[in-house]
Write a protein that binds this DNA or RNA. Structure first.
Lengths: 142, 142
DNA sequence: CGGAATCCTATCGGATACTG
DNA sequence: CAGTATCCGATAGGATTCCG
């Protein structure tokens, strides 16, 4: 009875895993935008986003530097990603006045907060990749 | 010069952040399927997936139980998600022989490996949600 | 240099209806 | 109960071309 789920949904008494859902914000039955998990997911959403973030974690970059670091990423998609990141306050962009224009994309403090997430993605992904001993599960079956 | 990036890409000497990219598998310039980060991302990819995983983390569920727990999730999408998870060896499905048919979706050991990821998503998402003190960044600008 | 504009295809996810 | 089948609108994201 240790991991029993008393999830009699139609009727009160719902227990939540304190590790997965520590606060009320996570007690959702739909992918609502204000659920912390959704917030984090949308921060890294979109193809190439984690790679762009990885480069920026390393230090500020100009548009072209990012293009050089990720040659297969098209200008349009890079601009899309960058705009999304700026929109969410994860990155700031500074531009020089002169010509040719120079840009400087840089993580904000909030953007830096994504570091542990990238780290965990890597760790968990590594664990999944190396261990194809799938099939059986020691879950808490009754 | 502590966090300088000696990323002279066109020419050798690339340094990698040992925390973000500890192994060769992550030294990629594109979203390749075998990069650990991509492996983890594809494990949780798709709308509703993290919610389905959350329920399964709590214990095995039948198809209908999942539908009750996530009422706004359509049968089609739930089936899609479940199939994807089974395909990747994160979940197993058992069915009773009799009638009516009963199912039992359960996380595998690999599926359980996603727990720390869900936890981190929640934590990082919470940090982002509560701290809109965006703008300035104490990054390692030169 | 640093993009924006346009176009085009693939896939996603939701609604609805039906089946073993 | 546990799905499948079909349809369909909305994006995502890549290629290409042009602009300040």
């Amino acid at each position: 009875m240790t991991t029993e789920h008393a999830r009699l949904v139609g009727h009160q008494t719902e227990t939540w895993d304190a590790q997965l859902v520590p606060t009320d914000r996570g007690r959702v039955r739909q992918p609502t935008p204000d659920c912390p998990v959704e917030v984090a997911l949308s921060a890294i959403s979109g193809r190439w986003t984690t790679l762009v973030l990885r480069e920026l974690m390393h230090g500020p970059c100009s548009f072209s530097e990012l293009r050089d670091l990720l040659p297969a990423l098209s200008a349009k998609v890079l601009a899309d990603r960058l705009h999304g990141l700026v929109e969410r306050g994860l990155v700031v962009c500074e531009r020089t006045a002169g010509f040719p224009v120079r840009t400087r994309y840089q993580l904000t403090a909030r953007g830096q907060a994504l570091r542990p997430l990238l780290k965990t993605l890597y760790e968990v992904g590594s664990a999944l990749a190396e261990g194809p001993e799938a099939i059986d599960s020691p879950c808490g079956g009754e």
